[in-house]
Design a protein around this nucleic acid. Structure first.
Lengths: 204, 204
DNA sequence: ATAAAAATCTACGTAGTGTAGAGTTTGAGT
DNA sequence: ACTCAAACTCTACACTACGTAGATTTTTAT
């Protein structure tokens, strides 16, 4: 190997470690699905990634760090997807679009998102990541509510606090539904959408 | 000691173990507040209760069993309180009353309730207990919605699923608020109450 | 070709869990 | 008052999983 890469080789061929790192995170995600966080041991992850425990500690300082990295990777994904969010003006359509996107996110990344929520309390780093994500969603919801005519402000019946509550409702509903079937996810989505609309005053 | 207790002594003086058991649960609750579930070791609990680790394992088979018992004890409390629930017919007042009660519950037992939620996934027994509790709340909310004129049924915009979503909203909102201040709890309560009313069609 | 950096390994120290089995206290029946 | 079983408590141990140390091999850059 080693094509010496004429000029554009500021970044040489991908480090071997980068591949391993990805392998570790992938294995971690798989094991998380298979046996859950507690039952999953550092040895398991290493074995799955084709290295020994000792080698794994070269990449990550602890089991928690591995999972944190996995969450970070996924959340990164969410943010990118969110940035490409529809810029619909019609509130009714904006809400429907948002819920469609949320269903997608949870079908694709439900496992990691559930893990993030579960570990938010015990792993501060993850708590921080998830808290940021929730804030982003809350902000988005607030905007829609205001555009639909809800009073802006921080009083209990004004946009901000309402958005926060709706965000928690969505989080929890999807958290549970995504453990069941894809069908449950769809139903939960419809219900949340309905409550969101009603809360926005779009009662018709 | 040992007054021989003429006739009514079918149940002799409280077993020493009963006292210990209570001491263990009390200590567990205190430690949970102080250092959290993960950091709290079985040795800590035993020490706090004035016995050795070995002795503790006479009462409970594991750390998880201790916490499960604690949750059970608390949930028991909730149920009793719930049975004594106001039987108001006027929906608006029923909602207000329910939220008042919920605030009480979370101010008094927030810590254990949060723990129950956190461990629901990893400790099946606790998951079961909490799931029952949530069901009870959902049923109550459903009743109020229906009395307020919401269509009964299981379609996404009918009473049952809506009640479930509202239940999750309340759970999550209080979960977070109870980690902050009593004031936040009050605010969260107002917001949830408002959304609940609007969802019930009590928009005036 | 060589030396630094990157990656990997084996071996060890530690903490916390749960179990075994022996010892002590309590109390109900005689 | 005596006794025996149940209730209770202890010390000691085995096991698992984590994280660290330090030696060793592989890659990569010059």
């Amino acid at each position: 190997m080693s094509s010496h890469q004429p000029t554009r080789s500021r970044r040489t061929t991908e480090r071997k470690g980068d591949v391993r790192e990805r392998a570790i995170l992938d294995t971690c995600e798989a094991l998380l699905a298979e046996k859950g966080y507690e039952a999953m041991t550092v040895g398991d992850i290493a074995q799955g990634a084709g290295i020994t425990r000792g080698a794994l500690y070269f990449y990550f300082g602890s089991k928690q760090e591995v999972v944190t990295a996995l969450v970070a990777r996924t959340v990164e994904h969410l943010w990118e997807r969110s940035r490409a969010a529809a810029r619909t003006d019609e509130p009714r359509e904006a809400i429907a679009a948002a819920m469609r996107r949320t269903v997608e996110l949870w079908t694709e990344h439900g496992l990691v998102m559930r893990t993030a929520i579960d570990l938010s309390l015990t792993v501060p780093e993850i708590g921080e990541l998830w808290s940021r994500t929730a804030d982003a969603f809350t902000t988005a919801i607030t905007a829609v509510l205001e555009r639909a005519g809800v009073q802006p402000g921080t009083e209990p019946d004004q946009a901000s606090p309402m958005a926060r509550a709706l965000c928690w409702m969505i989080e929890r509903s999807f958290y549970h539904a995504s453990q069941q079937s894809r069908e449950d996810l769809r139903k939960a989505s419809s219900t949340c959408e309905h409550i969101w609309k009603v809360s926005a005053g779009l009662t018709a």
